[in-house]
Design a protein around this nucleic acid. Structure first.
Lengths: 202, 202
DNA sequence: ATAGGTAAACTGCACCGAGTAGTTTACATT
DNA sequence: AATGTAAACTACTCGGTGCAGTTTACCTAT
């Protein structure tokens, strides 16, 4: 009964996996349906039995990858804990997310296409709903609690994440830089927290 | 003599301009030499008289665009001026650079390819030499002058630019967000300076 | 439970029309 | 006559389809 995977489903998964690799390696335009089918060890016809077109297959993959991040980095404001402690946890989990293999794959696949056609980007993102990082809500709560200066929380969150991504995302995505070690991750998180609180703490 | 030169040279420039548009719109793979030639109002053969291949034409354009930014944002440390003032100027000129049409074109064209093949990215960048933002030298000087805490200057510069780019670069590049108005630019620059100095000022 | 039958899915190939980078040919302008 | 041009041409690759024949999954009748 563990063999609950019918052969058809298995093929479908093979196709999705192969397509993910193909798109990641060559981009949307560079990817070839023939090469993809060969990769999946499946007839091209079978690919088209499962997915009506290259574009639909691409969207399907993007959705699939996005779904695996529905558990957004959720940070709940807690009066009992210090700001430093809470922010540090948020920063670290964000870094972990940026580090995760599948998240980086998603960005490899999508961002290149988004640069070339921002309308595709916005359509995809609005369809996925803003997986808004909950950080700005946390900031609002902290402001209400009188612990932070009153500021535009979305803007401040953007700054906070910008500091982190400058060290732990963009260099890796664009220039193949090595991902920071756990010690470096802690430093990056710590520095982001220090800078943020130096500016906004009451 | 100049006339004959200017005529063929004019065609050459037409081709380069058309190629820049074509690559910007469709990326390297999506760009077509036929469409490009039509754009330049020039025979395809003429294109191949000037450039031996699509790839060489692409490299030529990237180089050309990169050259126009050889004048990196250069900031000289001045004891006589306040840190705020100097940093604000640096931030604003960086934002101006990020805002400039041709700089954004360059990134539109190159970053999409860089994401897909980071080895191309590193080879291009090392060929261009690190157009290192002079900011980290400024930071070193300020540290020597006893005005800033002793920190890794490159890392701190990365943080500073990360804050700015989070608001004035990535959203525009990836999500077609409107570029900040002059007032917003001042706010972004001001906030980046505030945050940086709140953290690092002695 | 097993044998048999049916419907669905898979395969491999040939094929289509469009489009690609790059080359040759034949014409027109000077 | 010489040169540079446009148009046609080569030799592909692409996404996608049609089809004949094979394999798999599953349901039923014994």
């Amino acid at each position: 009964m563990e063999k609950a995977l019918t052969l058809t489903e298995k093929k479908r998964l093979d196709i999705l996996a192969a397509a993910q690799d193909e798109f990641k390696e060559k981009g949307f335009l560079g990817a070839s349906m023939d090469s993809l089918a060969k990769r999946a060890e499946v007839s091209k016809r079978t690919v088209y039995n499962h997915f009506p077109s290259k574009e639909m297959l691409f969207h399907n993959i993007v959705e699939l990858l996005c779904e695996s991040f529905s558990q957004a980095v959720n940070i709940q404001y807690q009066q009992s804990k210090s700001l430093d402690e809470q922010l540090y946890i948020a920063a670290m989990s964000e870094i972990q997310l940026l580090a995760s293999e599948c998240f980086r794959d998603l960005n490899r696949i999508t961002l290149a296409e988004f640069i070339r056609s921002p309308e595709l980007a916005s359509s995809t993102l609005e369809h996925l709903g803003q997986q808004k990082n909950g950080l700005h809500i946390w900031i609002d709560d902290a402001i209400s609690d009188g612990k932070l200066k009153a500021v535009d929380s979305e803007y401040a969150a953007q700054q906070f994440l910008g500091i982190i991504k400058a060290s732990a995302f963009w260099p890796q995505l664009l220039m193949n830089q090595a991902f920071p070690s756990p010690e470096q991750q802690q430093i990056i998180a710590d520095d982001a927290v220090l800078m943020f609180l130096a500016r906004y703490k009451v």
